[in-house]
């Protein structure tokens, strides 16, 4: 592929159109300007959902790429290191302690908890032997399990299991309507902001020694990266639930094609993440039409397959 970004964006256009045209209500999207009912469906349901999918896919892809640069390991994603579980824990805590807290405070709490959880993961893996590449993702999965079990236990004790089920189980977009997805713009903005520091993330990806040698303050850039990853994951988990594998698989594929010069590759990661999630969401909506299969389920199957191929195609180096 000579212009991977061009090809991906070209694929995004028909996918987006298809998404706008797919739904339980049979309306003619192109007649929307003259048909008030069609316009209502479009603006209240179809467009928000399509935007939500695009923002989520793009932001999770970018978050995954940043996380992989921060921990210098290809086999982790925001969904496998406990970030989402920590966000759920934070949100659960504020829901219990201050149910009347304004929404922005809840969002902030979830993001802060996500950041603490991810920082804990980073602190743990720093104590692992540096050569054991595969122990890093395993640590993440176990840590996610431990935090998840705390969340489950608290939720059980407080009869909030219904609430956390929507966060921790497979994500889906069927509930997205205007007014219930807008925080995803924060995720998108955070991912966009990361592009301005792309060089710094790429240098950090070379290792702390090289970064120090080049005069980069590694702590600051580490914190910035953790903040972006946590913000993105917290927003996604609390609006649409966990979306597995996007943040894991997309950065791997793009890194294969374009390498880790993040200033060039981050836009591509965002576009590819959006395209893959959009495609999976469309499959989920069409395969059992008019019923829906959650995109998380489709992604779990498709993503796991892609991941296994990547795992066995690329031998020694991580």
């Amino acid at each position: 592929m000579k212009h991977p970004l061009g090809v991906t964006v070209a694929a995004l256009v028909p996918l987006t159109l298809a998404s706008l045209m797919t739904g339980a209500a049979s309306i003619d999207v192109f007649a929307a300007p003259s048909d008030p009912w069609a316009m209502l469906v479009l603006m209240e349901s179809r467009l928000p959902r399509t935007l939500a999918v695009l923002l989520t896919g793009a932001a999770l892809g970018v978050a995954g790429m940043l996380l992989q640069a921060l921990v210098r390991n290809r086999f982790v994603g925001p969904d496998t290191v406990g970030t989402g579980e920590s966000a759920a824990l934070g949100l659960l805590a504020i829901t219990l302690l201050a149910p009347a807290a304004p929404i922005w405070l809840k969002i902030l709490t979830a993001a802060a908890a996500a950041m603490a959880g991810t920082a804990l993961f980073v602190a743990v893996i720093r104590r692992l032997p540096p050569r054991e590449v595969m122990l890093v993702p395993i640590t993440g999965i176990v840590l996610a399990g431990v935090i998840g079990s705390i969340v489950t236990y608290i939720a059980w004790q407080t009869d909030l299991i219904q609430l956390i089920t929507t966060w921790l189980m497979t994500g889906e977009f069927s509930g997205v309507i205007a007014g219930r997805y807008e925080v995803l713009w924060i995720a998108g903005a955070a991912a966009g902001l990361a592009w301005f520091a792309a060089d710094r993330f790429a240098i950090l990806g070379l290792g702390e020694e090289v970064a120090t040698g080049l005069g980069l303050g590694t702590k600051g850039i580490m914190r910035l990266g953790l903040a972006v990853v946590s913000l993105v994951t917290a927003m996604v988990v609390t609006t649409v639930g966990m979306i597995p594998f996007i943040g894991l698989v997309v950065p791997n594929i793009i890194s294969r094609i374009m390498g880790d010069n993040l200033r060039q590759s981050l836009p591509m990661v965002a576009a590819a993440g959006a395209a893959l999630l959009m495609a999976c969401d469309l499959i989920g909506r069409l395969v059992r039409y008019p019923f829906e299969i959650p995109v998380g389920t489709i992604m779990g199957f498709v993503g796991a397959g892609i991941f296994l191929i990547l795992l066995y195609r690329k031998p020694a180096h991580g």
Binding site: F75, M134, P137, I138, I141, T170, P244, P294, T297, I298, M299, G300, F301, A304, G305, F307, L308, L311
Partner: peptide, 15 residues
């Protein structure tokens, strides 16, 4: 890692 991923894959396929 393969086992863990296979586990997720089986569960998703079952779902």
């Amino acid at each position: 890692l393969t086992g863990v991923i296979l586990g997720i894959m089986f569960r998703s396929a079952a779902g």
